[in-house]
Nucleic acid binder design. Structure first.
Lengths: 222, 222, 222, 222
DNA sequence: TATGAATGAGCATTCATTCAT
DNA sequence: TATGAATGAATGCTCATTCAT
């Protein structure tokens, strides 16, 4: 055999670790699906383990409780959320300053369309679970901060209404998107063509900030 | 009949009915308090009857289940919500057209400040209880319709951005208020001076709709 | 009807209270039986409620947990134990001083014969349940104190070995009885004729204390 | 065979056996510690293997169940117990007959002081585990028998109360020691100076048996 | 021999709901 | 109408035990 005998133990360990990681993700993935489908309080641990295809008891080798998986799911979902905005909103990105709000809006709504149900559950639980609350708050604050920076940059360039309190404006725009996401994709109160709605929201946002049209040189402003 | 005069029966019945009504509202009030304090799933029927000062079993003389009281509470809260806006937004009111958005915004936020926790619970439950969902949807649609009308009136008078889809704009502004209410008063992510925030939000809303300043005759536009 | 109408409410309440008390005792009695038969850790709440002939859930209307019924049982058993000795050992009783040890010994062993299994369980649980421990300790200390008094009285009259530390001697005699009770009636290591054994133990106890034979006047010593 | 010389196999096997024995005692030692600390029913196999520093599963290579280690522990503890008395009580020992009871008492109490918690657990379990019961019974019977012999020897020499049934007296004295041991060292009801208590118990025992003082020749009586 | 992932049975506990009084 | 005792279904969680590696 060409593989050294000593290598076997680490390999075995590696296999174990891999196996462990796999089972764990299977549980988290199952939890994501279940949480998206069922009111949090009605989710039984058995639903999750069943969907993951493992025994009931095994759940407890990986998570101490139902709330704990949700924490993991929340972290995951929010991570994805912020990553998808980071690219657009980060200073020094490739999107022209003046267009960033538009692009971010579309990205955010796309993401909400996909994860709206989970987001709603996370928000619900964050009302009484401190850990989940902390995760939610951290991510939302980070997102708000990005928007605040964008608005201030625009104000500094004379492109946005200087009378706006950037903090309030950022919170307001963010709130608009999150709540619309919920009504549109979870509560399904609203029926709109996606592209039309995004275009309109972009217009509303631009109006709200008092954005003035860009000039050719704007592409240089990052 | 050996029992007292026939006249007594209606009186007795009246007393009964009054008593009944009283107990019923005591239960609803107790429920409002409990729901505002406790995650819906954790509320036990016993909590409500205990707070109402009646026996556990009596609850079931009035409501078939926990969800049913919530329906009643939801109807109540939403009724109050819409009434407080109706005065402002109804056509033919005394508030000048151009100022209605401002006033409505303030009113709405005041109401949310007071009932934010209940609103959050109702929204949560409406995700899986059709009846509550129907109540919520009806009221919100009514509110949206009012805003749509206002925006269209403003557009017709050449005071608002004619490029806006009034439906989308109305939904967006409404979403902004409801979500800010939750973050501000329930999740307590946001700390803002109430008057400053209201003024800023009014400015944002005006910008968003592209409202142009009013002229003296505007006070005639209702 | 000769009974006043007003009397009905208290009667009804009385009936309720009686009913409640009855159910409670049924549970306690059932618990006594079960605990005597089954290792404490193996007792399921369901065993108790089943033997009491009530539903599983009803148990929890009366006791917060299995340990709590045991506390009640312990209190009961120990109360009976001490009462059966009190009559003999209390100063001013009718039993001549010199005979008290004999009588007490017989009484105690009779009681142990009847309740040995429960006593063993209580002792076991008192190793890790503070409340049960407190009950056991209180009663045993009281019993020891009685014996100490008896020995001191005998020493004062010159009837018992003055070189004995009454505290140690009392503890030793008490220990002898309790442990023999367990080996004889629970572990069933020992097979003895009851009366013969009691007579022998009385002789051993008298020897141990160095009791000198009584004179006719002794019947006056109480 | 490509693996080393044949001589290695026995050596390897020897090493294996040594290793096996080592792991086994590590488990037994760990069990002793755990059982002394934790109510038997609350001891999990995992506690023992964890304290032994081996994996959970490995436990089952050595013992079929928790009860089985306890059997081993019980055997060990009781073996130590009887050995420490054998030296004193065995006929033909070096201790003068008349002093044996004293010495045995002290030895026994020293042993109990050290192992009281384990003894209590073993006794508890022996109430429902036949194997443990057998171990306990065997040792205690052996101990009783030694005392019976001693008492009979003393009676034969006219040194002890001839009216005593040696069987009952032996059981009574043994019971006294075991139970005092538990109350003193496990339940901690009693607080006594060790030497004082031992001296007193010796006096009580001597009284109980009616032992008369020895003469110089007694040292010859063995 | 050693590991620890996986299984599944078992029990305590809670609580909505009913019903005799 | 009002009470609260009684029911029983539902589910979270633990842990002994097995087994693939």
């Amino acid at each position: 055999m060409s593989e050294g005998a000593g290598a076997e133990v680490p390999t075995a360990t590696g296999a174990r670790a891999r196996q462990r990681e796999q089972t764990r993700s299977r549980l988290v993935d199952a939890a994501r699906e279940v949480f998206a489908d069922t009111p949090f309080a009605d989710v039984r641990v058995g639903d999750i383990s069943a969907r993951a295809g493992v025994s009931h008891g095994l759940f407890y080798h990986y998570f101490p409780s139902k709330q704990d998986v949700l924490r993991e799911v929340a972290a995951q979902v929010y991570q994805e959320l912020i990553e998808s905005l980071d690219v657009v909103l980060e200073r020094g990105g490739t999107t022209p300053l003046i267009d960033r709000m538009d692009v971010a809006l579309r990205r955010a709504l796309e993401r909400h369309r996909r994860e709206a149900r989970l987001i709603a559950v996370i928000e619900e639980v964050s009302r009484y679970d401190e850990d989940v609350a902390a995760i939610r708050e951290t991510v939302q604050r980070k997102e708000t901060a990005r928007i605040v920076t964008l608005i201030r940059d625009l104000q500094r360039l004379g492109r946005a209404d200087p009378g706006l309190d950037a903090e309030v404006a950022a919170a307001a725009l963010q709130a608009m998107v999150w709540e619309l996401g919920k009504r549109w994709f979870v509560l399904e109160d609203i029926e709109l063509d996606f592209d039309h709605a995004v275009a309109q929201l972009a217009r509303i946002a631009r109006n709200a900030l008092g954005l003035t049209a860009g000039t050719p040189e704007d592409s240089l402003l990052r």
